[in-house]
Amino acid sequence: MGTEATPLAEEPTTPRPGIRPAKVAGWALLCAIALAPVVARSGYLSSMGCQIATSAIIVVGLGLLMGYAGQISLGHAAFYAIGAYSSAILTTKAGVHPLLALCAGAAASALLALIVGTPALRLHGHYLAMFTLGLGIIVQIAIEQGKRLTNGFDGITGIPALDLGFICLDSDPRMYGATVVALVGCVLAARNLVDSRPGRALRALHESEEAASACGVDVARAKLEVFVLSAVMAAVAGSLYAHTIQFVSPEPFGVQFSVQLVVMMVVGGSTSVGGPVAGAALFTLVKQLLQDAGEKVRWVGYLDTVLFGSVLVLVVVFCPKGLAAVRLPAILGGRTFVGETRGDS
């Protein structure tokens, strides 16, 4: 409760807390983990870091869509694929500059999201999930069958490294660094969006579409905008992926990956901006660990589906706001894992 003298027109001033040692330690740990692959120049750590960061970029977008527009997409792997294949095709077959190819992929993705989202988001209910599920299947089949452009199942090899002019991202640690920068950019953009005028509209329509439209919010349009934004983020992640692996094939872009992205988002929590990153990191790490273990003991490799299925159910039942919203025991400060959840203050 502010003091009576505080004019409402100014930003509410919460009493600025002193620097909390726990918070500093948390950030330091996070930075250390994020920097480890670069410092260690480890190819293995870097490529895992890349996987986490690319997934996280997509999940940040999905989190905006789910957490604020209240819509689920089961086809974000399609936008991811469009980004990756745009980069792959344009750079190898047309000799386009990688950055230009990245922008082209993002634009194509945005256009497709606009086409699919316009009818789907005018309807009330979860039609977007069905529309995007269909889109995901269509895009995958198109990639598999459009052999002249995509080389079908053989995939496209020889994708050049991302050359930014002042630095050529030709190693995994470098590419990892760039992906993390892109992720941080997306997280900051998402945070800004949530606190801005359109974000306020999104939070309002999440509570009540009728009340939001009574405030003058064009509900269908607001949802469409956030859907397009999330598609663009997925396409950018796809382009970065293509330049990291320097090879694309249809396999990682299936509906399965779309579903995994939703799992990451739900597990991490969609109503805080940090949740998606946590979800992506957790999911990718566990998956990789199980895969590594599976090379020694075969059946362990098949555990991931069972494990993620159970975790998803447990999260939805016991902490529907996601792991990021789980409060630490009071002895550890009683804070949430990843910052404050919106609507928790």
């Binding site: 409402l8 509410p12 306020r200 939070r203 309002a204 509570e207 009540s208 009728e210 009340a211 009574a214 919106r342 609507g343």
Partner: peptide, 11 residues
């Protein structure tokens, strides 16, 4: 009234 419960009064 249907105020937005999760949003601040200012928002």
């Amino acid at each position: 009234g249907k105020v937005f419960g999760e949003l601040s009064v200012r928002d």
